[in-house]
Nucleic acid binder design. Structure first.
Lengths: 190, 190
DNA sequence: ACTGGCATGTAAATCGTTACATGATTCT
DNA sequence: AGAATCATGTAACGATTTACATGCCAGT
């Protein structure tokens, strides 16, 4: 039972419907918690039944109605308990790294292509994070915002996401060029 | 069916028993694939039944005997297929980041402590990675090793792990000091 | 005698992914 | 008319975690 805390933490920032939450988990939240839309729908239903979130119908014009959810007092209390508990070890799974681990024993061609693609995706995400951070801090300088701003949590996690994406891009480009150089050297020997 | 590829990639490097593999997944492999020992035992049994790895008994003196596993030709072929397939999105879950996301709404005290602990753990891991990298490359310079060395895959993934841990340490110390400064400022207002 | 590390599994309960299912509205 | 986006769910299957279970050997 851990997805629930990620959902509660995401809802602290603003109320979301299942669909909007899925979008959030696709961008910002994705830096520290991976979940598919179907999980969010079922988790929200469970959280509502347990009284940790409250849903209400929002009538919309020009698009289907939706149900948005707010964290209740009991939900905040649950987050408090979670914050005090020992964190579980970081959970990472990355196909691409598995492929690099095996790169000297299987054909490196596909892996190099996938590294290039990942680096390009990282560039897009870096720009998105920079824009999001600028939007969150508004016209304040970063130092000021970190000291006195509201919504400091999302800002700090975005900073982490940004740093991670920059690291990802550097590692992918570096690794791709190492593997390419080795393929070229190998080709020369033939 | 993805744990199997991480297991196969780890076994390319050298033969391991279930127990040894669990240790590897606790240190080096943990940077890109999280798995518990119980999973590895069951996965090895499945892989053996399917002929992707071959096990053999190793008689030991002074400790219980063990079964070590080698990747078969079919296992390498399976890895080739995996390398050519599109990678699944990176899967990350980190309790600590969820807590930071919520840090302006729940008590920050525990979170600050956990950030300090994570930074300290990162320091330990950084030293372990540096030692492992030095051992892998032996007396060669890094450039040379990257161009001509064997076992380049594990070296590249360790480089990634090292960069990630350094980033983790910086972010944790920075975030802890931001949260501490805000708590101090809040206390003054009372 | 006890602790800690080595060594391997099974079973039950929970969690996560994939496939299936539906339907409105806007834009091209 | 068709594609894209908004919007929400259920059911079956597969994967993961937790609890249970066992036993050897070395060092203190």
């Amino acid at each position: 039972m851990a997805l629930r805390h990620a959902v509660l933490a995401a809802l602290l920032d603003s109320d979301f419907s299942g669909y909007q939450l899925a979008k959030a988990f696709d961008v910002g939240v994705a830096n520290f918690w991976h979940a598919l839309p179907q999980q969010l729908y079922t988790e929200l239903a469970k959280l509502e039944k347990e009284g940790l979130v409250a849903g209400r119908e929002v009538v919309q014009h020009g698009r289907p109605n939706k149900r948005v959810f707010t964290v209740t007092g009991a939900g905040v209390a649950e987050l408090e308990r979670f914050a005090a508990a020992e964190p579980k070890p970081t959970f990472i799974r990355d196909d691409l790294l598995v492929k690099v681990q095996a790169a000297d024993r299987v054909g490196a061609g596909h892996v190099v292509r996938q590294l290039d693609e990942r680096a390009a995706a990282a560039t897009t995400r870096i720009a998105a994070f920079e824009a999001l951070l600028a939007r969150l801090r508004g016209d304040q300088a970063e130092d000021d915002y970190l000291r006195h701003g509201t919504r400091i949590g999302p800002y700090l996690t975005c900073l982490r996401g940004l740093a991670l994406e920059r690291e990802t891009r550097e590692w992918c480009t570096g690794t791709a060029s190492v593997l390419r150089a080795r393929e070229a050297a190998h080709a020369e020997q033939i």
